[in-house]
């Protein structure tokens, strides 16, 4: 557990602000999930996964603040890094897929399950 003097001086967060933060996180995740399930555009689907990602990151920060623990924030740094790298990769893939089929519709690739 990583804990600094300044953070220890603070009171652990509970009640209203935590609720707000967690509700925001849940809302973000739901929006992302619904978007992912309802859209067929690959770029939009990718953006929706990013939303779900950030919802998780927000929950991490909120719980880290609740427990007065830097671990949550540390995790978020990692998540952001990975998300950046993954965004580059995923967009590159999307570009490649688009070049093949001249469409961004994910159903164009349904035969991949064969």
């Amino acid at each position: 557990m990583i804990a600094s003097a300044s953070m220890l001086a603070m009171e652990p967060m509970a009640g209203g602000p935590l609720k707000v933060l967690l509700l925001t996180s849940a809302l973000l995740f739901t929006i992302g999930l619904v978007g992912f399930l309802s859209r067929r555009n690959m770029i939009l689907m990718f953006l929706c996964t990013e939303l779900m990602f950030q919802a998780a990151a927000l929950a991490f920060v909120a719980f880290g603040r609740m427990h007065l623990d830097y671990s949550g924030q540390t995790f978020v740094i990692f998540i952001l890094t990975v998300a950046a790298a993954e965004a580059a990769l995923a967009l590159a893939l999307v570009v490649l897929l688009f070049r093949r089929r001249e469409t961004l519709n994910s159903e164009a690739w349904a035969e991949l399950h064969e």
Partner: peptide, 10 residues
């Protein structure tokens, strides 16, 4: 396993 990405996600 029908190849529809949204199906898997659902």
């Amino acid at each position: 396993y029908n190849g529809v990405l949204q199906g898997y996600a659902t």
